[in-house]
């Protein structure tokens, strides 16, 4: 066996996209029936459903590229924690509503420039998925940005909660913006956007919004990384236990 093939790099990247959408979609769906207002509840469920929709597209493509006959469902429900390639940020617990919105905001600010770059991918399959997904992600970003600004620049209580959320989540943004050699190689041939391009757009958006929200990102502190090689926080196991229970207990069960 020599160096990983371009297909292996592409499959790993597709899993990263699909798994990130899947785990965040699951996390956001946990708010169903619990959001602070009916309107927010519906909005959260919409975001969760959008993300699960993106998951299906990315994981179907991952299965196709892998060529081992695994469907999107197989990949979602029959892999163990070490096989998941999601960014660490999305598996962190919801916490309060402010923490959930801050996590969404930091993710969306990455998701949109990533998808914009992918929409121009030299791989037409990747471009097709990204062009579909970016329309919904644009709305997610505009909604989460609006709410982060409102709550950051809101009451003393909401400001305090949003700042605490930012402090808690910031260390995981290093993992979010990280790329490995495989992804760098894909960027070299125009399949995915360059890391610096996405990180630059992320920084511009986040800095502007945080300034308006009167929130301050930590200047230094821990930098968590690990989602890419499959090294997760302790939370992933609990998510999978709940998400995969049905397929594990009743293999092949369908609606």
């Amino acid at each position: 066996m020599g160096a990983p093939s371009p297909d292996a790099d592409l499959q790993a990247f597709l899993l990263r996209m699909g798994d990130s959408c899947l785990i965040l979609g699951h996390r956001v769906s946990e708010w169903c029936g619990h959001a602070p207002a009916l309107e927010d509840d519906i909005a959260m469920a919409n975001v969760a459903l959008d993300l699960i929709g993106h998951t299906r597209l990315w994981l179907e493509l991952a299965g196709e590229v892998e060529g081992a006959g695994r469907s999107a469902d197989d990949l979602a429900f029959l892999r163990d924690a070490g096989g998941f390639r999601n960014v660490l940020l999305v598996e962190l617990p919801n916490g309060d509503f402010g923490n959930t919105l801050m996590r969404q905001f930091l993710f969306d600010a990455w998701h949109v420039p990533k998808l914009r770059g992918l929409a121009a991918s030299s791989d037409v399959r990747v471009a097709g998925v990204a062009q579909t997904a970016v329309r919904e992600a644009n709305y997610h970003l505009s909604r989460s940005t609006d709410l982060v600004i409102r709550l950051g620049d809101g009451t003393a209580e909401s400001h305090g909660r949003m700042q605490a959320a930012l402090d808690r989540l910031w260390p995981y943004t290093f993992d979010l913006l990280d790329v490995d050699d495989g992804e760098a190689a894909l960027a070299g041939v125009g399949v995915v956007p360059r890391a610096a391009e996405v990180a630059g757009a992320w920084r511009d958006h986040v800095e502007t919004a945080l300034a308006e929200a009167t929130l301050v990102a930590p200047a230094d502190g821990p930098e968590h990384r690990g989602g890419r090689p499959g090294l997760h926080t302790e939370h992933i196991g609990y998510i999978l236990a709940e998400m995969q229970f049905l397929q594990r207990a009743y293999p092949g069960a369908v609606w």
Partner: peptide, 20 residues
């Protein structure tokens, strides 16, 4: 109808509740 703190959020909420 729906609840919202101001017009901008009312439009956002309307998008989520009524125009999916």
């Amino acid at each position: 109808s729906l609840h919202a703190p101001d017009a901008a959020m009312a439009i956002n909420n309307a998008r989520d509740v009524y125009t999916r």
